[in-house]
């Protein structure tokens, strides 16, 4: 029931997103067929792809954050606080240098491989360091990300690719056009895969002993989660650039609302992820119209405030 309301709100946001822009297109005219060729062209080549990209990237980034939190067993990690995004960036940077002509799909796979390796390294470090404090885990991830990011910056500086590196880390949907977003359908499928594996991932979040006791292979389940997270991160990075905070905030809000049983939580996280990104994008396009505020800036602003609130709340909780 509540999920239906959430779905309606997200759909409404998607509709608004379709009709916001410099060229005014009225929904009624569109329905009556009362639009000229140029308006139709803008609708199909720019507006629809952009809205689809927002929905797909938003939903899957939020789901990837949730999956990450389950396999790391920590509320405060997401691909951008675990070295995943930075590793994917490094991979993309290297492939851009070595094989600039490679197809986007190939570049994405290289970025995914780097993301996988970086996240696996993060998990390895966590296993080696006995961590008592929940906040230590994201700190380790941010530090690892910082080191990998520094390597990328050094290389990018040497070869004059600083601007590209900056663009990847700043998610922006203004460049989305037909033919340049279709890779994002893959992340939609990955979010679906996360839903199908919901029970296994929920179990993995209970730890190795519980998982083994119930006859499930813990390592295989964590590996599955890692693959989902890495692929989502890589695809989002090469298509629209990284979307910060989303994977952190949405799963935490959903967890407060309905808990962490992924069979229930994944649809909510996907829906709210899409809705949140749509809302931020609409704001970013209207506040300074006809100019745009990049989505990463909007999310960074709103997201950091919510994140701070969650942190302070968790401090209070952890004391119990």
């Amino acid at each position: 029931m509540r999920l239906t309301i959430g779905l309606c709100i997200t759909l409404a946001l998607a509709m608004i997103s379709l009709f916001v822009g410099v060229t005014s297109i009225s929904p009624l005219d569109l329905l009556r067929g009362n639009v000229d060729a140029q308006q139709l062209q803008i609708m199909m080549a720019s507006r629809v792809p952009r809205t689809l990209a927002l929905v797909l990237a938003g939903a899957s980034t939020a789901v990837a954050g949730l999956v990450m939190q389950m396999i790391v067993r920590n509320r405060f990690v997401e691909p951008s606080t675990a070295g995943t995004m930075e590793s994917a960036s490094l991979g993309l940077l290297l492939v851009t240098l070595v094989a600039p002509g490679m197809a986007l799909m190939g570049k994405m796979l290289v970025a995914a491989a780097f993301a996988l390796a970086g996240t696996a390294l993060f998990l390895r470090i966590l296993r080696m360091v006995p961590l008592r404090d929940v906040l230590m885990v994201p700190l380790v991830g941010i530090m690892l990300g910082g080191v990998i990011g520094a390597v990328s910056t050094f290389i990018a500086y040497r070869y004059g690719l600083i601007a590209s590196l900056g663009a990847w880390s700043m998610g922006d949907f203004s460049g989305v056009l037909r033919g340049r977003y279709e890779l994002l359908w893959i992340v939609g499928l990955l979010a679906l895969a996360a839903y199908l594996a919901a029970d296994r991932l929920t179990l993995a979040a209970m730890g190795k002993d519980f998982t083994t006791n119930l006859g499930l292979n813990y390592r295989a389940t964590v590996a599955l989660g890692l693959v989902i997270v890495s692929l989502v991160s890589a695809v989002v990075l090469v298509t629209v650039g990284s979307i910060p905070f989303l994977g952190l905030i949405v799963p935490n809000v959903v967890s407060m609302m309905i808990g962490d049983n992924l069979r229930r939580a994944v649809p909510w996280v996907a829906l709210m992820g899409a809705g949140f990104v749509l809302a931020c994008d609409i704001l970013g396009r209207t506040l300074r119209a006809p100019y745009e505020i990049p989505i990463a800036t909007m999310l960074g602003l709103i997201g950091s405030v919510i994140f701070l609130y969650l942190l302070l709340r968790q401090r209070h909780h952890a004391a119990a």
């Binding site: 389950m70 509320r75 029970d199 929920t202 979040a205 209970m206 519980f210 967890s255 808990g259």
Partner: peptide, 14 residues
């Protein structure tokens, strides 16, 4: 120690 928020019924169902 289970860090995730599960209800008692969720847990027992597992």
């Amino acid at each position: 120690h289970i860090a995730s928020r599960l209800t008692v019924r969720d847990l027992v169902s597992f």
